[in-house]
Simulated assay, not measured.
Amino acid sequence: MSAVTTTEAAVTVAPAKDTPQVRRRRRLSPGRRLPAARLAGPVLLLALWAAASAAGQLDPAAIPAPWTVVRTGAHLWTDGTLPTDILTSLQRAATGFVIGLVAGVVLALASGLTRTGEALIDGTVSLNRAIPTLGLIPLFILWLGIGETFKVAIIAIVVYIPIYLNTYAALSGIDHRFVELAEVQGLSRFAFVRQIVVPGALPGFFVGLRLGVTGSWLGLVVLEQINATSGLGYMMFQAQNYGQSDVILVGLVVYGVFGLVSDSAVRLVERRVLSWRRTLSS
């Protein structure tokens, strides 16, 4: 009896040699999103600019100090010049952006959902994309005149191309099994677009939307220096003639702030609309 008990105790105490050890799972995801992380780069750049200016490493005539740019911006704002130019630029950018947005989405849907539309539209847009948009300015001036119309038209072209390309690519990338499932379920054309096409195209659409928002500001910088009497680009062009680098930097800072804010707004809407996706960014 005691021999059996001793044997059982030995069996109980003896460690199992083949028991696998628990391995810690390695985290491969980027981790949690840091609050206001996208502002770290601009803030660091501003700090380096201020430090270099304070140390006398930058020529004030070429690159004024940040506090000089702030004083100049405050002066332009109080005398009414900066608010008027900002409002004019916003109107031009918004009008061209809306036209380009509608055109890009409509053309992408027509090209992505029908073979006839693809044959007529996709090649034409690819040809338009191969031609430098700013190179169309002389031709558009001859067609539309030197006023506001040609500026809005150029901005619309700059906007619609990335929106079309990314939305069309997303439509083309929808798994054909979803289309077959919709056919088996007997979905109508409207229900198919609402339940299959729109969710499948939204990720690509938002990528194109971000590129279009940025493109509208880039095009505006050039267009407002051509026969314009107001706008941020006109203000910068006039400052160039008088050697006012601080005014030029004010315009660039305003353009940069508008671009960052608009891009952040699109990203916020994207995260809300596509909250159902599980991605690295989420």
Rank of each mutant, 00 (worst) to 15 (best):
D246P: 02
P83A: 05
R25N: 04
Q225N: 07
V198S: 10
F192I: 00
T68R: 04
Q91H: 11
V207R: 07
T149Q: 15
A103W: 13
L90N: 05
V13E: 15
R23I: 09
T124Q: 03
V179F: 08
I157F: 14
A110C: 15
L127F: 14
E180R: 08
P83F: 15
F190W: 15
T214Y: 07
A153N: 04
A182R: 08
A169W: 05
R210I: 07
A170E: 00
G31I: 11
I141C: 07
A10V: 06
T214G: 14
R278D: 15
I121T: 03
A103N: 06
S216H: 09
A103M: 07
T19G: 01
S245G: 04
F140I: 02
P199H: 07
E270P: 00
G41N: 00
T279Y: 03
V261R: 08
F97Q: 08
W217P: 01
T116L: 15
R24F: 14
L58Y: 03
G112H: 03
G173R: 04
E180K: 06
L280I: 01
P162T: 06
V102Q: 09
V70Y: 12
H75V: 11
V273T: 12
K17Y: 08
A156G: 07
V213I: 13
G123N: 04
P203F: 00
A108V: 08
T167R: 01
F190R: 15
R271I: 01
A119P: 00
L46E: 11
A228N: 15
W143C: 05
L127I: 12
T19W: 02
S275Y: 12
R23L: 14
P138A: 11
N166D: 06
P15H: 09
V125H: 01
I99K: 15
P42F: 05
F178I: 01
T88E: 14
D175G: 10
G145S: 11
A94N: 13
I226F: 06
V247I: 15
W143R: 05
F258I: 04
L280G: 09
L171V: 02
